[in-house]
Nucleic acid binder design. Structure first.
Length: 989
RNA sequence: GCCCAGUUGGCGGAAUUGGUAGACGCGCUGGUCUCAAACACCAGUAGGAAACUGUGCCGGUUCGACUCCGGCACUGGGUACCA
């Protein structure tokens, strides 16, 4: 028997757990290194082979850093609040906590089998009260803070109140103006809510009726919910939000200083969407009202031919003339009822209405009509635009549709065909801007606008404040209660606010969130006061969104069991922030933006020393599944008239499922009666079935054609596209009696497609099976070997035999084959003789490559390099300790189990984890000669070895003297000879 | 539409600063072992009989281009009436 990975891997996993081999210390003389994975949501489906990809990469890096002498923090935990557990609870009544615990146990079991070097003592779970206590605590800090634009950071709200008092600020209450001290408690609360970083307000939210909750912009994709894919509509609601917009500029600027991929940075830049322009007011004709617009193209001011307001704009009803009132009201109703999704679906559809009112052009004084259009968004800028159809494609489309004038003010386009949006060209028809280039014109226009007091230069962001309340059960309760309608946060010593028990995980009959079902769940002050009387105060019934817990978890790992602080100063001063963060790119504008926001906020309060959560970020690619299909033959009836009868016919023909092998697709689209299925069973079956309905077919003059539809089939019963027919019949009841139309050799060939790996597509490959069959080391090596970490690639189990063979070859290097072949295992045999130069060269070449591969995150090439190394050492029949000991160390990050086993056999009693990574000694790599490729006009013809000490001139001379050179020269004289030392010789003819 | 990434054998992929294109592995073909199969081992494997041709397509720079520049196509991802 050879290498027994099952036994060896189990032993070492037990050893690591027992000895807490990977526990990180919070004080150490070693330099620190923090390697973090994005923690998973523990779903019921368990891990598939795609999940561990990033974990394996980070584990290799963490183990490498330990070998390099770093104190490494490499933790893991669970993002355990979330929708699936709650939906499961709604269906089954099972408490989400139970579901979550079960799923976590399964995840842990799967993770353990792969041999990760996580420090499990630091595990965090966001749904654990010990954890969410501090999530709530951070919320309270957000509530108690405002953003001071002067200091450009968050401060305690008390500094704002102080400011109000010092400046004697006045606040409008109804028609009166009062000082801050003169306001009632409620009025003060309302004023402060406009500044707090966590605040309650009436905002347009993304409401998802099916989920019964609101969603943040980042959770809505293509107009449907990211989770579940349900339609989302706009709705005005009182909601908790976080003022992330206060940090827009810093979130944007600080991207410069972090080593993240350009694509993620770009996605964040786009999401933040900074645009610089100017505000500009238009006076409404015969009224004191003005309409303020935001524009980035003030240079086109003389091209304005109308002004468009969002249907929700506050001035609409006031402006609208009596003649237009009906049309306007009708349009507003229409716009309101169009869901986000519809609006997006027909971007091309232009809708709008004229209000009957006019504004006056600020420079020419001309009348400009005011229109409503839903292409103008209420939530961006001022909800009103100046329309310049000549130089904005949306305005152009609107103008064309409603036959409004189009004025050319920038030369260079052809306005009869399309608008000219480019920001280059000279201004025309523009009074004082004529002749200027766009850039200069923008500047001049802003100057004039500011000079005349019409507006001023302004920056707008696309980023919206993050809606923070969710009308869900399975999340952190927001630590707020309402006293006389005033929202108040709990005292810190009242945390955690435990998620109460409810009878059902659904909204109440009156539409309140599930938490309103909790009986007797009321806030009572610890200290005596009005709320102590009676039943106490109502709590906030919304819970926090899924991203709350994940916005600071990287800090908790530093000090996971601290019961008095979210993280101790000492721990965070030591660990600072994440050195290497690995996770999926799908979090580009969600999690990765929020965690940056919270980090900056906590830094502002002086609680942590860093302003960014992660120095370096790597996005692992997705591992896609390869789905398999069977092709179902579907009779399609085209009947004239009677539809019911048509259905009856097709049902009769469909009684048994007919599945056609892929390569017999010539049979598809065959019509009724004119086929030969080349399959007796099927001919018989269909002839019988058709005979039964022949009368109806003829009566209806129906036409039958056979089409096919592809059905997903479990990839685990398909091997190399050949269906295991027995397993297939047993797989599902409806396939038991299916008629399988096979190839001539009896095989049923499946089709396939590369898709997302998902339970519903039946293409999931579980890591458990791979570990069981080939071992954890093989799985780890193979996942890395598949290709560059960042690239998406389809999973193909077949290739794993390659790395599995490699592991056996590696094992054999350290052993001599047993002579009496039967029972005995190969004998461990390593020689203490000094290594010879070729052996040392192989080793040190490999060390050099592995170091540069790991540090460049090129894990796929390092696996190749190990293979080359082992192949070469096998060729050299090398079994020297001097070579094999360092080899075990450099391979340990990738294949830790076999490395530990070999290490212990080499006579070490300690784990290989903290061995020293060998240095590359360049002296072994020095070559004395180089085999030069000799090329003619850039095409390599032959090779010639020359000593490296030879000068260029000498080589040139030698090459020309060669017989082969003369042959390729064909008697011509070379024009030029290029000799690149240690690289190439090129002869130009 | 805009932004980002990518396109190399039958497949996954490799190629340092512009310097031997196809490393390594899978698959395939042939062979050895075996009664046979599997495993294992050995040899071959970009195309072409060859001259030659080949890194998505067209063009450029260069002694020399997968690599640099200009244009285009396609694939994947992100984002979208953002004024």
């Amino acid at each position: 028997m050879e290498y027994n990975f099952r036994e060896v891997e189990k032993n070492w996993q037990d050893y690591w757990a027992k000895n807490k081999t990977f526990a990180a210390k919070n004080d150490s003389d070693k330099p620190k290194y923090y390697v973090l994975d994005m923690f998973p949501y523990p779903s019921g489906a368990g891990l598939h082979v795609g999940h561990p990809l990033g974990y394996i990469a980070s584990d290799i890096f963490a183990r490498y850093k330990r070998l390099k002498g770093f104190n490494v923090l490499h933790p893991m935990g669970y993002d355990s609040f979330g929708l699936p557990a709650e939906q499961y609870a709604i269906q089954t009544g099972q408490h989400p906590e139970i579901t979550t615990k079960t799923n976590i146990a399964r995840y842990r079991e799967q993770l353990d089998k792969i041999g990760f070097s996580f420090d499990w003592d630091r595990e965090v779970r966001t749904s654990n009260p010990d954890y969410y206590k501090w999530t709530q605590w951070i919320f309270i800090q957000l509530f108690n803070s405002w953003y001071n634009p002067e200091t450009n950071k968050a401060e305690n709200i008390s500094t704002l109140i102080e400011k109000f008092k010092v400046q004697s600020s006045k606040f409008k209450v109804g028609s009166a103006e009062k000082k801050y001290e003169e306001l009632s408690e409620k009025e003060q609360s309302d004023v402060l809510l406009e500044y707090r970083l966590a605040y309650l307000s009436n905002t347009m939210v993304n409401w998802c009726p099916q989920l019964g909750t609101v969603l943040a912009n980042e959770e809505v994709k293509d107009g449907v919910s990211e989770r579940g894919g349900y339609p989302v509509e706009r709705k005005l609601m009182k909601q908790w939000s976080l003022r992330i917009t206060a940090y827009a500029d810093r979130l944007l600027n600080d991207l410069e200083g972090i080593d993240w991929t350009e694509s993620i940075k770009e996605a964040q830049r786009n999401w933040i969407g900074k645009s610089e322009g100017t505000s500009l007011t238009f006076k409404v004709e015969n009224s004191d009202d003005v309409i303020e617009v935001f524009t980035t193209r003030p240079d086109t001011i003389f091209g304005v031919s109308f002004v468009t307001l969002a249907p929700e704009h506050e001035l609409v009803s006031k402006l609208t003339t009596p003649e237009q009132k009906n049309a306007v009201d009708e349009y507003i109703t229409f716009a309101k009822n169009r869901s986000e999704r519809e609006r997006m679906a027909d971007v091309k559809k232009i809708t709008g209405v004229f209000t009957g009112a006019y504004v006056l052009h600020p420079f020419t004084g001309k009348q400009i009509p005011i229109w409503l259009g839903d292409y103008v968004l209420a939530g961006y800028g001022t909800g009103a635009i100046m329309a310049v159809p000549g130089h904005d494609s949306r305005d152009y489309a609107f103008a064309k549709h409603f036959e409004l004038p189009i004025i050319e003010v920038v030369a260079g386009g052809d306005l009869s065909k399309e608008s000219y949006d480019a920001k280059e060209g000279k201004l025309i028809n523009s009074d004082f801007l004529n002749g200027l280039e766009v850039k200069a014109a923008v500047k001049k226009a802003i100057e004039k606008i500011e000079e005349k007091g019409l507006g001023k230069g302004k920056t707008n962001f696309r980023l919206r404040d993050a809606i923070f309340g969710r009308q869900r059960y399975w999340g952190e309760p927001i630590p707020v209660y309402y006293e006389n309608g005033i929202p108040k946060v709990l005292a810190e010593n009242e945390l955690p606010l435990i998620l109460p028990e409810v009878d059902k995980y659904l909204p109440t009959e009156t539409g309140e969130p599930p938490l309103a079902r909790a009986t007797g769940w009321k806030y009572k002050k610890h200290t005596p006061g009005p709320s102590q009387e009676g039943n106490g105060c109502e709590y906030e019934y919304s819970t926090m969104p899924g991203w709350a817990g994940s916005s600071w978890y990287f800090l908790r790992y530093m000090d996971a069991h601290n019961s008095t602080e979210f993280v101790s100063k000492k721990a965070v001063d030591y660990w600072q922030n994440v050195d290497l963060y690995i996770g999926g790119a799908e979090h580009a504008t969600g999690h990765l933006l929020y965690v940056r926001f919270w980090t900056k906020f906590l830094n502002d309060l002086g609680l942590i020393p860093v302003t960014e959560p992660a120095k370096k970020l790597i996005n692992q690619g997705m591992i896609q599944g390869v789905s398999s299909f069977v092709y179902r033959l579907v009779p399609v009836i085209e009947a004239k008239g009677d539809r019911d009868k048509g259905d009856k016919i097709s049902n009769a023909l469909r009684e048994n499922l007919i599945l056609v092998s892929k390569n017999r697709s010539e049979l598809f689209n065959t019509g009724y009666g004119d086929y030969d299925w080349k399959d007796e069973e099927l001919n018989k079956y269909l002839t019988e079935k058709e005979a039964k309905v022949r009368k109806e077919i003829d009566e209806l003059e129906a036409k039958i054609t056979y089409m096919y539809s592809a059905l997903h089939v479990d990839v685990n019963i398909v091997s190399n596209n050949i269906l295991d027919q027995n397993a297939f019949r047993n797989w599902r009841e409806e396939y038991k009696n299916a008629i399988l139309l096979t190839e001539e050799n009896g095989d049923y060939i499946c089709g396939n497609a590369v898709e997302k790996m998902s339970k519903s597509l039946w293409n999931v490959v579980s890591p458990d099976l791979m570990v069981e069959q080939y071992g954890a080391d093989a799985l780890r090596l193979y996942e890395m070997f598949l290709g560059p970490l960042e690239l998406s690639k389809p999973w193909n189990t077949n290739g794993i035999t390659g790395v599995s063979n490699f592991i056996r070859k590696l094992w054999r290097l350290y052993h001599i084959p047993s002579t009496n072949n039967e029972q005995q295992t190969p004998n461990f045999s390593v020689s203490d003789e000094p290594a010879v130069k070729p052996e040392l060269k192989v080793l040190h070449k490999t060390i050099k490559k592995i170091i540069s591969d790991i540090e460049g995150f090129s894990f796929n090439t390092s696996v190749s390099n190990f293979m080359i190394c082992v192949n070469e050492l096998t060729e050299l029949k090398c079994n020297k300790r001097e070579i094999l000991e360092p080899l075990a160390i450099i391979i340990a990050p990738y294949a830790p189990h076999i490395a530990e086993e070999l290490w212990s056999k080499l006579g070490h009693s300690e784990s290989i984890t903290y061995a020293a990574f060998p240095e590359c000694k360049e002296e072994y790599l020095v070559e004395s000669a180089f085999n030069y490729p000799v090329s003619f006009n850039g095409k390599t013809r032959f090779f010639q070895e020359y000593d490296l000490s030879l000068s260029k001139e000498a080589i040139e001379k030698e090459v020309l003297a060669l017989e082969q050179t003369q042959k390729y020269l064909e008697g011509k004289t070379p024009k030029k000879i290029i000799v690149v030392h240690n690289k190439i010789v090129n002869i130009v003819v």
